[in-house]
Simulated scan of single mutants.
Amino acid sequence: MLYFVLILVLAALGLVVTALITANSLWAWISIGLSVLAGLLLVVDWLRRRAAARAQSPADAEPDAEGDEPGEKDAERETTDEPTEEGQTALLPATGELKTVAGEPAEEQTDAADLLVVSALETEVLVVDEYPRYHLGGCTWLESKDTIPLPVKEARDLGFTPCALCTPDATLAAEHREKRESRK
Rank of each mutant, 00 (worst) to 15 (best):
P70Q: 08
V16D: 01
E62I: 11
A170T: 04
S31Q: 01
A120R: 12
D45A: 09
A155L: 03
A113G: 02
F4T: 03
V152N: 00
G96N: 01
T84P: 04
A170K: 10
A38T: 08
G71C: 07
L26H: 11
H176Q: 12
Y131W: 14
E154H: 06
P151F: 06
E69S: 11
A65D: 04
D157A: 14
H176L: 06
P149N: 09
L172Y: 01
A155E: 00
R50V: 01
L6R: 15
A120F: 08
E82D: 13
E143G: 10
R177G: 02
E122D: 09
A164K: 08
V152D: 01
T100N: 05
E82Y: 12
K153V: 01
C166F: 04
T79S: 05
I32L: 14
L92M: 14
Q88D: 06
L158Q: 12
L2F: 10
A120H: 09
R48G: 06
G159N: 03
A120D: 07
L15C: 05
V44T: 12
A23F: 11
L8M: 13
E107I: 09
R156T: 02
G71H: 03
E97S: 10
A55P: 00
R177S: 03
A120K: 07
I32F: 13
E130L: 15
V118G: 02
P83K: 13
L40F: 14
P93C: 11
E85C: 09
T161W: 07
L121F: 02
F4S: 11
G71R: 05
A55E: 10
N24H: 11
G39R: 11
R183T: 04
T110D: 06
G71K: 01
E108I: 06
L172N: 01
T100G: 09
W29P: 03
E181W: 14
A23G: 08
T123M: 07
Q109D: 06
W46T: 06
L8G: 04
A52E: 13
G96M: 08
V16T: 01
G96D: 05
R183K: 10
A102Q: 10
V118F: 05
D68R: 12
A65Y: 14
C139W: 02
L98G: 10
I32R: 06
P149H: 08
V43W: 06
S35I: 08
E178Y: 09
R180G: 05
I7V: 15
W141I: 05
E178C: 06
A90M: 10
E130C: 10
F160N: 04
D114M: 06
S182G: 03
A90P: 05
D74C: 03
A90F: 11
T167Y: 07
